[in-house]
Simulated scan of single mutants.
Amino acid sequence: MHGSLSAAWLLVALCAATGAYCLLRMRSGVEEQRRTAGGEALMGFGMALMAVPAAVLTPPRWAWLLYAVVFGGAALRALWASRAARGHHLHHLVGTFAMAYMALAMAVRPAAHAHHGGAGAPVLTGLLLGYFAVYVLWTGARTAPSATVSGGAVAGGVGGTAPGGWGDRPELARACRLAMGIGMLAMLLAM
């Protein structure tokens, strides 16, 4: 993607750290959480690879096509999983579609990547930007800690859930998704 070098490296670090945490979440005892964490780890590491500054690494056209195939396959998997009408699977579908879209845009215009020009269809990019902006605001509001007064004591927590193993904490998973949403916004803006 494009943009300032320091911002690009911060985005790489954010996405790689998010992907690494999602790999750790795959140790959960709940199968659905493991499956979701695996898809999110793929997104995090894929975003980190795509965000490496062009001044450091300019992938060949076939690499962008490979990204498009991998994320297109992940989008099909998310589409299959969303048939049960689960909200997060629909979000994962939009995210993997956005990744495939950005990879295809970069494959079609590899010279634009090297020269920091624009790529992609402006209307679709705008729709994706709008979706991820709303998602980031919504997830950020849900991630913010809430305080509940009970018997004179203030109990902090997110969503009223009791903390379990640190890999199974829903607020950490939401923070992961928030970080990836912010990263997606940055990548779409850089297109």
Rank of each mutant, 00 (worst) to 15 (best):
V108F: 12
R109K: 14
P110K: 09
P110Q: 03
A111C: 13
A111E: 15
A112Q: 02
A112V: 09
A112M: 09
H116K: 14
H116V: 12
G117E: 15
G120D: 07
A121M: 12
A121W: 10
P122F: 12
P122L: 11
V123M: 10
L124M: 15
T125M: 02
T125R: 04
G126Q: 04
L127G: 14
L129N: 05
L129F: 07
G130W: 08
Y131H: 14
Y131S: 13
F132R: 04
F132E: 04
A133E: 04
A133Q: 08
Y135E: 08
V136A: 15
L137V: 07
L137E: 02
L137Y: 01
W138D: 11
T139G: 00
T139S: 01
G140P: 10
A141E: 02
A144D: 06
A144I: 09
S146I: 00
A147D: 00
A147S: 07
A147R: 01
A147W: 02
T148M: 11
V149Y: 01
G152H: 02
V154H: 02
V154Q: 01
A155F: 01
A155M: 06
G157N: 10
G157S: 07
V158F: 06
G159P: 11
G160S: 01
G160T: 04
T161Q: 07
G165Q: 10
W166Y: 10
W166K: 08
D168Y: 05
R169Q: 09
R169G: 08
P170Q: 14
P170T: 07
L172G: 06
R174M: 04
R174G: 03
R174S: 03
R174F: 04
A175G: 09
A175M: 06
C176P: 05
C176I: 03
R177M: 07
L178E: 01
A179P: 00
M180G: 07
G181F: 01
G181I: 06
I182V: 15
I182P: 00
G183I: 05
M184C: 11
M184W: 02
L185G: 10
A186V: 09
A186G: 08
M187D: 03
L188F: 06
M191Q: 12
